[in-house]
Design a protein around this nucleic acid. Structure first.
Lengths: 225, 225
DNA sequence: ATACTTAGTGTAATATATACACATAGTATT
DNA sequence: AATACTATGTGTATATATTACACTAAGTAT
């Protein structure tokens, strides 16, 4: 039987991953510095081609793991970027994903033959980016902000245990707006987002804060803000 | 310069379009009946390959136009379906879109050499579908329901002018739940979603209803429900 | 013992959402 | 001409959710 698709020239499929984490009181994203032309010296999102025998999501996880060493973190499809001129090498469709990393996890960032450098960048102060990665990143930030408001996604950005002030801070940093402490706690409590652990964070030079954990660590629709 | 992507076997890119419209007081979707094996007799979403020189969205519009004759209707990316076994012919990644068609527009549905039949199906009573199209469709219905609640997307399902009862009916049908008439009108009014035209719908065997139109016909975030 | 800093808590005012019933303006029928 | 019929169009009271706002508590550091 003839394979009908082969009468077309193929459009190739790749994936890029926007890896978010809070670092130093700011929303950061992991970028790699490119060694090769035409984007030599420019920074780019981790990513690469999708192999013929793996699903697109699996490819995203593979590239994520290759650059960061982590697996088993929040990963969700962001958008497929399919413009016909987005890659100067050839026709590549990229399915972008975004990943969220708790701020207590540090990474084994490793340079490779292909990449000169890997590091966190605050999304408010980005360097020049390769390809259409500025657009992908912007889409990712928008999605993250939006999902923060109507899901419990925040669990994937915090350590296992955390104080309510820390939780509030995460919202404040990402949404870039102050939140009233009492109203925030009232809301979080009434939604059943968190549960007490009985433990306290000690060793700080002030009143110790109670430690909480999330009642659920899987994505759920919850109107928080 | 060597093209690095060519050392991989390519994953090909296609697109499928979920075309929604209200027909006979139900949410319907346009499906085509397949002539060829291995899905002979099964129904499928309109779609096909992405050409090497066109963007993915343009490919979606092209396939939409080819099956329905319409252009210039609401079209938005739904999700990229990238499972490695979704197409028995070969490795095809499909970027699915969904389109919304006002219920006053009828289509010139045409069969082709490739397809035996084209018709509307109520989403509540679907036939057996080819590929992973049942999953794509389910994702589309979910997205439509969700977006109905927090955007003005409904404008793309109604005629240019409509009565408030008709508008309410659209929500009731798609969300499959009754809405209080007075509260609905209060909300729609206070959000400035619609404006009066001064005209009335005449010729019905009862009190004539005022005709409205949407204040905006481009997608905006508005909490309606 | 005192200063310092972050944690932790309640209430009143306002805004939003919900529940609910009858008069109105036409056409159709006699 | 009168009456029946049917979908349109409208307001108010109650419950719920959101907002604004200030002081005491529990530790560590001096």
């Amino acid at each position: 039987m003839s394979k009908p698709y082969q009468k077309f020239k193929f459009v190739a499929a790749a994936t890029d991953v926007v890896i978010f984490s809070l670092r130093g009181e700011a929303l950061n994203v992991l970028l790699i510095k490119m060694k090769k032309k035409p984007y030599q010296g420019k920074w780019a999102l981790p990513g690469g081609m999708v192999k013929i025998s793996e699903s697109v999501e699996k490819a995203a996880r593979r590239h994520l793991q290759a650059k960061t060493g982590v697996s088993d973190i929040f990963l969700e499809q962001l958008y497929a970027f399919g413009g016909e001129k987005r890659d100067p090498y050839g026709r590549v469709l990229s399915v972008a994903y975004y990943a969220l990393l708790p701020y207590d996890k540090s990474l084994m960032l490793k340079t490779t033959a292909e990449y000169a450098d890997v590091r966190w960048w605050p999304v408010a102060k980005l360097p020049a980016l390769a390809y259409d990665h500025a657009e992908i990143l912007k889409t990712g930030v928008k999605r993250l902000r939006s999902k923060l408001g109507y899901t419990n996604i925040v669990y994937s950005l915090l350590p296992r245990q955390f104080t309510l002030s820390e939780l509030q801070k995460v919202y404040e940093i990402i949404l870039d707006q102050e939140i009233d402490k009492r109203n925030f706690r009232k809301k979080v409590g009434s939604l059943g987002l968190v549960k007490t652990t009985g433990k306290k964070r000690r060793g700080e030079a002030n009143r110790p804060a109670a430690l909480f954990e999330f009642t659920s660590r899987s994505l759920a629709v919850v109107n928080i803000l």
